[in-house]
Amino acid sequence: MPAGSNLEAVLAAGRFAVTAELGPPKGTNLGVVERKAEILRHCCDAVNLTDNQTAIVRMSSLACAIHLRRMGLDPVMQMTCRDRNRLALQSDVLGAAGAGVRNFLCLSGDHQQFGNHPGAKNVFDLDSIQLIQVLAGMRDTRRFQGGDEFTGDIPMFIGAAANPFADPLPYRVVRLAKKARAGANFIQTQAVFDLEIFGRWMAQVRARGLHEQVAIMAGIVPLKSVGTARYMRDYVSGVVVPDAIVSRMEDAPDPKAEGMAIAVELIDAVREIPGVRGVHIMAVGWEDVVPILAERAGLLPRPLI
């Protein structure tokens, strides 16, 4: 049964899809969400709402996803296993689905050590693959993980993340296969900077036929400054930024423009890789750049389906 989300429709139509990330505010102002959503409205097919990203407390992805739905956008509600157990996660899914949210992204979640409550107790009742299974079970059998039936339709387009760049590299395609088997419909990858590693991973993905089971969207992070490039290379675990890219940023007279140029090049490059069905642009705190990148990469206008 189709979930009926715009993202699903664009992918089903065989179009190259675009999603973008919207970071909810560290406060109560929904106006911030609205402003960012309007920037993204016409340049992507669905908008991801992060769930206390990097373990920093922000407005909930559930509240923001519902708000975006009411604004007529197609939200992707991110859900991490760090903060909520299977009761809370399933309850949130019921609320979101009831309000018309159709895309759900299942994540483990950054460790709380990185956030603003490092003394918190984490949950991890489920892991991300089990969360996919639980959601797929709800969708396909209309039953909770615990076995009880519930009422009402629950159309869901289920997403998951994949990191082709983290150790152990040969295991990464296996983990993707598990996510596909658990019931994932689409995948958004970690930021791609190293096309060689990404290309090798995609070859493994195709060899297993996984690109036909899940729609793979390559993660794109536009670099805003030399500092960001260096920081991502040196301090963000599981992200590979080749020195060549950092050097380009360092040598550029206008690093911001160079970061945008690199992002457009990366979009062009991943688009040429067989099996890549879209891009997921994560312009953390720099949402304004997304329409520019989409335009320059020839991804506009977005299809109306």
Binding site: D127, I129, Q130, N163, A166, P168, Y171, R175, S237, G238
Partner: peptide, 9 residues
């Protein structure tokens, strides 16, 4: 996690 490493390795 019970089903493999997260992306932070």
């Amino acid at each position: 996690l019970l089903n493999g490493p997260c992306g932070g390795v």
